[in-house]
Design a protein around this nucleic acid. Structure first.
Length: 445
RNA sequence: GGAGAGAUGGCCGAGUUGGUCGAAGGCGCCUGACUCGAAAUCAGGUAUACCCGGAAGGGUAUCGGGGGUUCGAAUCCCUCUCUCUCCGCCA
């Protein structure tokens, strides 16, 4: 039913039954993401699992009813009871063996399913790389013109004394930075500005834990695929052995999406919208040599994240709204940007559809991603078991989860520095932000 | 960190000499009756997942998680997690 014509938005990922019963269709749609996904083992394992369940459950049903009979026999006919007990012993062992094998099969199957990315939505353009992403629109602010050669943000930041990359490296290593003075204040102002904007537009503010359990990381799909991209923390016991492990969140998406893990939400209250500030920690494995200078790619940065839990019928409308809410930050800051629709080849593994917001950076002479807004459909919800009851008495269904940055704070600082720079090296503060800066209108050396 | 108590269905709350307990009772919710309508009252229904089946329906699992004892565990044993109370420490 998930693949009925005209209903592509219902396409679900990771649902074993759907995948197993629609192998060719699923494989076809996954092929748009690129080669290398083989579903045959999934089909084979699914069949083996089904068969084993039937056998084991039949044996268990027999065991159960005869076991009850044994209970009665013990009182009425002890010798017969002893005889039956001996038979049941054997049956019990068969059942246990079947259970073990089933557990093994299902573990293997889960590992396979975890490795399969989400199915792209029908409206996502097919393409192999970022070059095939589709331009959706530009924001209202025009591209700024400069009568001088605009500097990159790190040059400005160092000259203004508000970004200290050297000391960041001294204390923590590469890709760590101190913001100081007006720079630190600017970050704080941006966070408040963004949260105030979003909460005034219907989001509930949430300040989440910054460390999460391995379960939470799996629920949103960070594990096991991206284990190398995250920081893991451990607590040791007296003997120096692992007592507990927690992960530094790579985005507030992780704690906030897991906020409703294993819950059945009231359908009448959907969509639920949250705006969460958090620092984000990323190991950035595999990006050596990329954006080595400046704030663009740090191991730690701050972000305000928007998260929604929506009914499947409305999730794509909510994606448009969420994207517009993220855009609104750039609109108010009067920064030039464009909205891109990611193609199948550039789409994140968990996402069914993603819009990237790319802000113009005159110092780099390039558009750079400052927000990524995605609909994950029920891909995350299935793992995290987040459901909703459409109406009282009805069956629970999986919700659709969405999220997007609103926005990445560090990159917003970059955009402000580069777009609002003056010939003398000073930087104006966008009007919308001035109330949050104690009225400051300009950062000067 | 030390001492103790607890974790049962949407919620509250029985059940711990192991057997027919998916689990009494209450609340909530749904359906019907009564009513012009509502409230109150009465009757019935009311978990989730998986497997078989076209369906009706049937089967299996789940009483915080995991493991064990047993023919059989919500009930016994071990372990982990979480919550609460008291003491200590601490931003």
């Amino acid at each position: 039913m998930f693949f009925a014509p005209g209903e592509p938005q219902r396409a679900a990922m990771l649902d074993l039954r759907t995948v197993a019963q629609n192998l060719p269709q699923v494989a076809e749609r996954l092929s748009h993401r690129g080669p290398g996904i083989d579903l045959t083992p999934v089909g084979e394992l699914a069949n083996a699992r089904r068969q084993l369940i039937q056998e084991t459950e039949a044996a268990r049903a027999q065991q159960k009813s005869e076991s009850a009979q044994l209970g009665r026999l013990i009182k009425s006919d002890p010798p017969a009871a002893e005889k039956l007990r001996a038979t049941l012993k054997g049956l019990s062992e068969r059942v246990k063996a079947g259970d073990q094998e089933l557990e093994r099969l299902e573990g293997e199957l889960t590992q396979l399913l975890l490795g399969i990315p989400n199915l792209p939505h029908g409206s996502v353009p097919v393409g192999g790389s970022a070059a095939d992403n589709r331009l959706v629109r530009y924001g209202s602010a025009p591209k700024p013109q400069f009568a001088f050669a605009p500097l990159e943000h790190f040059e400005l930041g160092e000259k203004l004394g508000i970004l200290d990359f050297e000391r960041g490296a001294k204390v923590s290593g590469a890709r760590f930075t101190f913001s100081s003075g007006a720079g630190a204040k600017l970050e704080r102002a941006l966070i408040s500005f963004m949260l105030d904007l979003h909460t005034s537009r219907g989001y509930r503010e949430l300040l989440p834990p910054f460390l999460v359990s391995p379960d939470a990381m799996t629920g949103t799909g960070q594990l096991p695929k991206f284990a190398q991209d995250v920081f893991r923390t451990v607590a040791l016991d007296e003997k120096g052995e692992l007592k507990r492990e927690l992960f530094l969140i790579p985005t507030a998406e992780v704690p906030v999406t897991n906020y409703h893990r294993q819950e059945i939400l009231d359908g009448a209250r959907l969509p639920l919208s949250y705006a969460a500030y958090s620092p984000c920690f990323r190991a950035e494995a595999g990006s050596y040599g990329k954006d080595t200078r400046g704030l663009i790619r740090q191991h730690q940065f701050q972000k305000v994240e928007l998260v929604k839990f929506a009914a499947p019928e409305t999730s794509y409308d909510e994606l448009e709204k969420l994207t517009a809410d993220a855009c609104e930050v750039l609109e108010r800051l009067k920064l030039h940007y464009r909205v891109m629709l990611l193609c199948t080849g550039d789409l994140g593994a968990s996402s069914a559809k993603t819009y990237d917001l790319e802000v113009w950076l005159p110092g780099q002479d390039a558009y750079r991603e400052i927000s990524s807004c995605s609909n994950f459909e029920d891909y995350q919800a299935r793992r995290a078991q987040i459901r909703y009851r459409p109406a009282p008495g009805e069956k629970p269904r999986l919700v659709h989860t969405l999220n997007g940055s609103g926005l990445a704070v560090g990159r917003t600082v970059v955009a402000i520095l580069e777009n609002y720079q003056e010939a003398d090296g000073s930087v104006r503060i966008p009007e919308a932000l001035q109330p949050y800066m104690g009225g400051m209108a300009r950062i000067e050396p």
